[in-house]
């Protein structure tokens, strides 16, 4: 019981912090956009052809372009509290609907590559640590250093050139085949188009988790308890599984959750290059085409997403580790 109480208290604190964070994110992004030369009216009329100055004046007053920033912000905030994020100017649909659709597409991409990079990275790290200073370890390390220092977009372009253009295994982009309605896209079409962006995104994530796992495992292998386990007659791969992985897994998972923000940043670039219709691409076009409501909406939702990742990492660290978990029971 006491443990649950602690957890609730912890979560309560986190939620308060989260609200403060959101307020600052909203304030800052709103002020930045207000200071930028983005003008929603221009975007709107660009689609309408010739528009008279009177009409522009009416539109400007409708959107409150010339009102002071405080009024604008309060109007917007009041709407957000009612979950009305306004209408996207480029998609001509409610912002919430656009974000929902794009986020689902992105989540599939991000989560699959997140799991993939986590599993592969962890395995590579364990192997490298176990075979420390051998040729296998060196190969894995070199591979990680190269990936770590290569920019995401460059790897994405490289993959696109090799696998899509030269080998022709995968389509070069888009979430659906050209000329097909989105309702008619089969699961396989969709999966086929997901693979290359997913692999690109995970390849970038593998390096950090591998190097981290390798380092942690080597630490564990030099620890007193590892030495004692050896002295008790345990050896080889069994020793690694029983004592190494047990002690490395939790910090590695935590790191992987903390990587949510990088994942999001990577997804923006990868989606842009593969023209994958996800939240990253929507953010870029919203920015380039002055879609203020959509841009602000995306900023808020990505802040929530990244915060959730960090929150899970915190909970894992504080409540899964038996040293802390059981310790609190006793301390109570």
């Amino acid at each position: 019981m006491l443990k649950n109480e602690k957890l609730l208290k912890f979560l309560g604190k986190k939620i308060v912090r989260f609200i403060i964070l959101l307020i600052f994110v909203i304030l800052l992004s709103f002020i930045l956009i207000d200071m930028s030369p983005i003008n929603p009216v221009k975007t709107y009329i660009a689609n309408l052809g010739v528009v008279s100055p009177e009409k522009i004046a009416i539109l400007e007053s409708y959107w409150g372009v010339n009102e002071p920033i405080t009024t604008k912000m309060f109007n917007w905030l009041a709407n957000i509290i009612h979950l009305d994020f306004g209408t996207s100017l480029i998609y001509r649909a409610p912002v919430l609907d656009v974000i929902k659709e794009k986020f689902v597409a992105s989540l599939v991409l991000m989560l699959s590559s997140w799991i993939f990079s986590g599993v592969i990275g962890f395995l590579l790290g364990v192997i490298a640590g176990f075979k420390k200073d051998t040729i296998i370890d060196k190969a894995i390390k070199v591979y990680c250093y190269i990936l770590q220092s290569a920019p995401t977009f460059w790897i994405a372009l490289l993959f696109l050139m090799v696998f899509s253009v030269y080998l022709g295994w995968f389509p070069t982009g888009l979430g659906v085949p050209v000329g097909t309605l989105s309702e008619n896209v089969s699961f396989w079409d969709w999966l086929h188009r997901l693979i290359l962006p997913m692999i690109t995104l995970s390849v970038v994530g593998i390096a950090s988790i591998t190097l981290f796992t390798r380092d942690k495992l080597i630490d564990v292998m030099n620890s007193d308890y590892f030495l004692f386990a050896k002295a008790r007659g345990e050896s080889g791969w069994n020793l690694i599984v029983r004592h190494g992985i047990r002690n490395v897994l939790l910090p590695a998972i935590t790191l992987q959750f903390l990587g949510f923000s990088e994942l999001f940043g990577g997804a923006v670039l990868v989606e842009q290059i593969f023209t994958y219709p996800g939240i990253g691409q929507a953010a870029v076009s919203a920015g380039l085409r002055s879609d203020v409501p959509l841009l602000l909406g995306i900023v808020i939702f990505s802040a929530i997403f990244v915060y959730c990742g960090n929150l899970i990492a915190d909970v894992l660290y504080n409540f899964v580790d038996p040293r802390i978990r059981e310790g609190e029971e006793d301390g109570g």
Binding site: Y225, F228, A231, E234, R246, N247, D321
Partner: peptide, 20 residues
């Protein structure tokens, strides 16, 4: 033979795996 015929009694509790 280690852990069988010859065994070690270590210095402190730090020689036990903290998570096992």
């Amino acid at each position: 033979i280690r852990g069988k015929d010859i065994v070690l009694v270590p210095q402190s509790v730090n020689f036990l795996d903290p998570l096992m």
